[in-house]
Amino acid sequence: MTLDALSTVLVSGIVLASVYALIASGLSLVWTTLGIFNFAHGALMTLAAYLAWTVSDAAGLGLWLGAGIAIAVAGVVAAGVLIERLIVRPFYDHRDILLITVMTTLAAMIFIEKGSQLIWGARLKQLRPVVPGQVNFLGTTISAQEALIIALAPLLLGLLFLFLRNSRIGRGIRAVGQNPNAAKLIGIDVSRLFIITFALSAALAGLTGILLGSVRMVTPAFGAEPLVKALIIVIFGGLGSLGGTIVAAYLLGLLEAFLIFFIGIYWAPSMIFVLLILILLVRPQGLLGKVVR
């Protein structure tokens, strides 16, 4: 493997990893706080990309891209809050909340996906990049948008970490995830923090969708593949913590890039799944995880 090839693989791996880290951290945040999996998480990406396209593209309202991003993020945050209120909240005290919310959020995913298809059609759309042009990164030329993704992912995740670690609400969110009853007894409004968690997670999904929407083509199923990857990442990461998820995201992104290089784009996804199942056979708690729940 030449140095050139290595740097190409490495860079494409980092781009993938950054996208995965952003999308998986939102999923993981909801999991560690509420103990549920939001299968509509990927669909929120799709929704944000379409909303941003409608507001900012010439074929839509043709406004400034910033307006598109703002409206799109606001829109998915609203959608995230609706999901929590309408199809997650009714089951908080239910013994099978995990199973039921997998089904309700799966339904929400179909609802958004097919709704997008009705509204925006099946034709491919692409967002304007936030930053145009190309840059050189580690000896490989990539679009400036991809460079932006590489830079923004650690920044956003760092901010998320700071928020969860140091702010009052952020600590409250962690407390609710670790022990909701004890959180209640120190005056934390658990239900309000659940909404905030969903809103945050949706905002992350929305931003990822907008960033990715100018690199890939937006279709109604735009968010399905990242969702599946994010699911695998949280298993790899061991479901325990946001930190584990992020490490797993970067590992998986790089692994995927190398697999694509060595065994081709067709077999790479299958290999990843096979690897996942093998890992679970040896370590049922995930690669990085400790036993949880």
Partner: peptide, 19 residues
């Protein structure tokens, strides 16, 4: 496996076959 892992693995399996 338990609970959520079963959900995730079986989903992953169906995606594997699709791929």
């Amino acid at each position: 496996l338990q609970g959520v892992y079963v959900v995730l693995v079986t989903f992953a399996f169906s995606q594997l076959v699709l791929q």
